[in-house]
Write a protein that binds this DNA or RNA. Structure first.
Length: 323
DNA sequence: CGAGTTTGACCAGCGC
DNA sequence: GCGCTGGTCAAACTCG
């Protein structure tokens, strides 16, 4: 495969435990000639920059070539027809979406890209601790959560990356705390936690069993701290602080969808998709998921400076044209 | 020696 | 109620 060439892009969003919003967009080579579609892709790509595979995305890693991202949050729904079979994020749907060379924009409601979501979304299975008072009494499995305590649903962002390595470098430091075999998949799922104190961000990494070259990474939560500066230069150095401001919502995007929301073209893309297939998906206030999500925060309108920054941080070939 | 990984065990939720 | 599964804990281990 040609690395550094982003042909297919896919993202999936759920904003809530039950509802799912999902859009997938495929940008083929021809589409790159179209500035708008190409920008859409780039925008989306940026949406995953924060967490995801910076090196991958920008070809800093030798094995990278394609990035598919998804965002999960709450209560946006798109129940469209599942094009493929599977139930898991790794199923055929993904492959279909990812490899479909013809469609410039396609949509699907399959669980592709976020199998965890699917089972997660069924219910909160987060609260584990059973014992109260810190769960000391019972040896393991207690997280110090109370029984009835419902853990707040953290926004999640999942993306798929074609990569040979499972754990993608994203600028943050992660500590692996578990690994589980995944049903219907020969590949285990690894669990990581951000090593920064008081940062509760977690991520799960697994490989698609349908396409072993695809790594599915799911981030959960928002970093409440800046990128570690000690990292091999990539993210912290590549991206302007404004795009990596920690959590404070008004400050700037610390989460990919926040970047997403700052990109005008992503609206464009979403609207395209919505117009095509899901008239009801934004029913509540005729806002798209990101707009709705954005309702509770300061709506930041991308400025010309943003684009300038983009050009600074992203090789121009990814923004406009090939060198 | 500290930080990170591995791995078996434990727990909760869900479906039957 | 039981079994399955996902998610997490934590002791043991590895690595720099």
């Amino acid at each position: 495969m040609s690395d550094h060439e982003f042909r297919d892009f896919y993202y999936h969003a759920t904003f809530g435990e039950t509802d799912m919003y999902r859009v997938s967009s495929t940008v083929n080579h021809q589409a790159q000639a179209d500035p708008s579609s190409y920008m859409s892709f780039t925008d989306c790509l940026h949406s995953s920059l924060d967490y995801g595979s910076l090196e991958k995305a920008f070809g800093l890693s030798p094995s990278s070539s394609e990035v598919f991202s998804s965002i999960e949050g709450n209560n946006i729904q798109t129940k469209q027809e599942v094009t493929g079979a599977g139930d898991l994020g790794n199923n055929n749907n993904n492959s279909e979406v990812m490899t479909n060379p013809n469609s410039s924009i396609s949509s699907s409601s399959s669980e592709a890209g976020c199998e965890e979501d699917s089972d997660k979304s069924k219910k909160d299975r987060q609260p584990k601790g059973s014992s109260e008072d810190g769960g000391e009494s019972s040896k393991k499995g207690n997280k110090g959560k109370k029984k009835g305590e419902k853990k707040q649903k953290e926004p999640r962002f999942a993306f798929m990356t074609k990569s040979e390595v499972d754990h993608l470098e994203d600028g943050y430091r992660w500590r692996k705390y578990g690994q589980k075999a995944v049903k219907n998949s020969p590949y285990p799922r690894s669990y990581y936690r951000c090593t920064t104190q008081k940062c509760t961000v977690k991520k799960r990494v697994e490989r698609s069993y349908q396409d072993p070259s695809v790594v599915i990474t799911t981030y959960e939560g928002q970093h409440n701290h800046p990128l570690p500066t000690t990292l091999r230069g990539s993210a912290a150095g590549l991206f302007p602080p404004s795009l990596f401001t920690p959590s404070p919502l008004s400050a700037g995007p610390s989460f990919p969808h926040e970047l997403f929301m700052q990109m005008p073209h992503h609206h464009h893309m979403i609207n395209n998709q919505a117009a095509g297939s899901a008239g009801s998906m934004f029913s509540s206030e005729s806002l798209n998921p990101f707009q709705q999500y954005n309702h509770n925060r300061h709506h930041q309108v991308p400025t010309a400076d943003d684009y300038g920054l983009l050009q600074d941080m992203v090789p121009s070939r990814f923004l406009k044209h090939e060198p």
